[in-house]
Design a protein around this nucleic acid. Sequence first.
RNA 1: GUGAUCGUAGCUCAGUCGGUUAGAGCGCCAGGUUGUGGUCCUGGAGGCCGAGGGUUCGAAUCCCUCCGGUCACCCCA
Length: 431
Amino acid sequence: MSTSFQNIKGTFDILPDAYSDGGTRIASSAEWHAVEETIRDVMHRHNLEEIRTPIFEPTELVARGVGQMTDIVSKEMFAFERSGTNYVLRPEITAPVMRSFLQHHLEQRGGVQKLFYIGPCFRAEQPQKGRYRQFHQFGVEVIGADDARADAETIAIMMAIYRAFGVENTALRINTLGMPDARAKFVNALREYLEPYEDDLSETSRRRLAKNPLRILDTKLDYEQEILSDAPTLTDFVESDSREHYERVKTYLDELSIEYEEDPLLVRGLDYYTRTAFELESPDLGAQSALAGGGRYDLLAEEIGSSQPVPSIGFAAGMERLFLAIAAAGNDLPEPPGADVFFASLGDDAERWVFRTVHRFRSEGLHVAHDLKGRSLKSQMKEANRQDATYAIIIGGNELEAGAAQVKHMASGEQVEVPFDGIVDFVMDRK
RNA sequence: GUGAUCGUAGCUCAGUCGGUUAGAGCGCCAGGUUGUGGUCCUGGAGGCCGAGGGUUCGAAUCCCUCCGGUCACCCCA
């Protein structure tokens, strides 16, 4: 059996069993469920509520929210047009959540809205390990709070999730970006500082100098780092309000014993960030080392049309990278339990009886498996074994006549006779 | 988008100085036991050798293009 079709580049199928795609392990659907369940559990413990938004949005929302100059908008969007409207498969979920918050006036629910999401995103990037064209993000948006405790709590939630999976080998870096005015002044100063060195810079850095000088700061080239060692720092330009806010965030992080490293060179790729920025990295993931990142985005709401500012903070995290980190930590996800009962039948009468009984047992709440191919008893027993069934129940002419089934405990091999009307209780009692 | 590298049964991989019908292990199906799984034995199915083109008497093997994976750049979750 085969087909010439295949999944689109940069996407992957999630199958009942884990498998290897090239060098990357793709987790099973059960593992995805287990991870999502743990994420939801941690979110709920932190008093967050789930929000789900469509996977496509007007292009304009994303362009305004994320920023025209970003790589995401300028070259990585899956966009299409229909009947004169431009749509885009969402490349991230913060702007859509803010759109939804504003559209549905969620501030009217009162208090701070603490939301989380989990779902697919799309970016037309060159795929590699930990980076896909359809990937999955989970994240948090704490909307309507400018208090530094909101920043620290958001980071704490993020850390709690990785802890829940036993992912300990991580580095949290934080910084403050200040407000746009300060950043603009800094960008000018940085440009002035770097211009004399222009000929020494790499091609990409020269391009960034013109387009987005902030990005030069996280160059990986040693000699460029050298040049930057005496450059002005963003911190020097950040206005006192933001600096005080930053100090409070750090105090609250200390309060929670969350370890972090201050990184004045940390800048984030999306335009909407203000003040607090942070990133969680794992040294175990190769080139795509960012597990999660986030920050404060006090200006996003107005950017997409709100008449009022809505101070907010959040983070986004990659599911695929979480799986990589879990694997690197050597941790296993729980296996799903097998069937409670596998019904094996012999002969037409038994098949009919089993078919009816299987459905009755399922309505009683049992996980029941059976054969749909009319195979030999031996094959059915093999199937029961493969499905990891707790009990195999054998029904043939003899059992129908006696009104009692042969019930075999697969792990021990012990087999007993149980009257038909006692089987459900027998299995339930021993679950 | 750029560079490097890889692509042979469902999976992991042998096989390339070009030469009969392309192999192994595991998995799958069946039989050994016409009413009993996990171990064992036996047999079977399953491959346009990633796709297309070229060189050649002859291509899994050599060349080109494309597709896909991986690694890195870039960027980021």
